[in-house]
Computed example of a mutant assay.
Amino acid sequence: MHPVRIWDLPTRVFHWLLALSVFGLIVTGTLGGSWMNWHMRLGYAVLALLLFRLVWGLIGGHWSRFASFLYGPGALMRYLRGQSPADHSAGHSPLGALSVFALLFILLAQVGTGLISDDEIATFGPLVRFVSGETVAAATGYHKEVGKLLILGLVVLHIAAIVVYRLVKRQALTRAMLTGDKQLPAPVPASRDTLGTRLLALSVLLASGAVVWWLVRLGQVTY
């Protein structure tokens, strides 16, 4: 077996921060009331994390880049038949890749609609004033009903996949996301995970946070 650095530190930190933030969003959104202030803050945090991941998917470690887990229908079918090459078990598998892209897309839709949602009580998104009332109503309906259910469904599927891999395939997916390394039967390219790449990731995260701060401030500026 060959120990290989698969997940660089920035990807691991992103993963756990996103998981905690999404959990917090579900809890605060369900509680409502004064918890909605924290719900909005966590939404801003998730948006910053997603912007970071989009950039890191282009310049991050080898297995964190989108190019490493862009699969066609043929690759997915071979994986489902158990005929995938060994390197498909290193990073995201074809099925796992679908889950990642679906989660990123649905979370972006959820925080995007949150920016222009209004519960008509005391909480509204910072960009509400830039869109029509019909758009606000549609965004609010999606955010509170459809988007929430989609996220809950994906979270359940994600947890179920972890359990299946642990019990059936004897693979501890969470361990690799904690340590960054996997024990693989054949050597594969390792992800670069140096002080330089970590500082680069920090600068990308700070820039992503600055973009979110600008968006929020944009909705608060009066003319």
Rank of each mutant, 00 (worst) to 15 (best):
F23S: 15
L25S: 02
L25G: 03
I26R: 06
I26F: 15
G29K: 06
G29A: 07
T30C: 06
T30M: 13
L31R: 05
G32K: 07
G32I: 11
G33S: 09
S34G: 12
M36W: 03
H39Q: 09
R41M: 11
R41Q: 13
R41T: 04
V46W: 01
A48M: 05
L49D: 00
F52N: 06
R53T: 08
R53C: 11
V55C: 04
G57P: 05
L58T: 14
L58Q: 13
G61R: 01
H62C: 10
W63A: 00
S64M: 11
S64N: 13
R65A: 07
R65H: 08
F66S: 07
A67P: 01
F69V: 09
L70G: 13
L70Q: 08
G72I: 12
P73S: 13
P73K: 13
P73G: 11
A75L: 02
L76R: 11
Y79R: 03
Q83A: 15
Q83T: 12
S84E: 15
A86M: 09
H88L: 05
A90P: 03
A90T: 08
G96K: 04
V100W: 00
A102F: 14
L104A: 05
F105K: 08
F105W: 07
L108G: 06
L108M: 13
L108W: 05
G112M: 12
G112D: 12
T113Q: 09
G114R: 02
L115D: 09
D119L: 11
T123S: 14
T123C: 04
P126A: 06
P126G: 01
P126Q: 05
P126Y: 09
L127D: 05
L127P: 03
F130I: 06
S132P: 00
S132I: 04
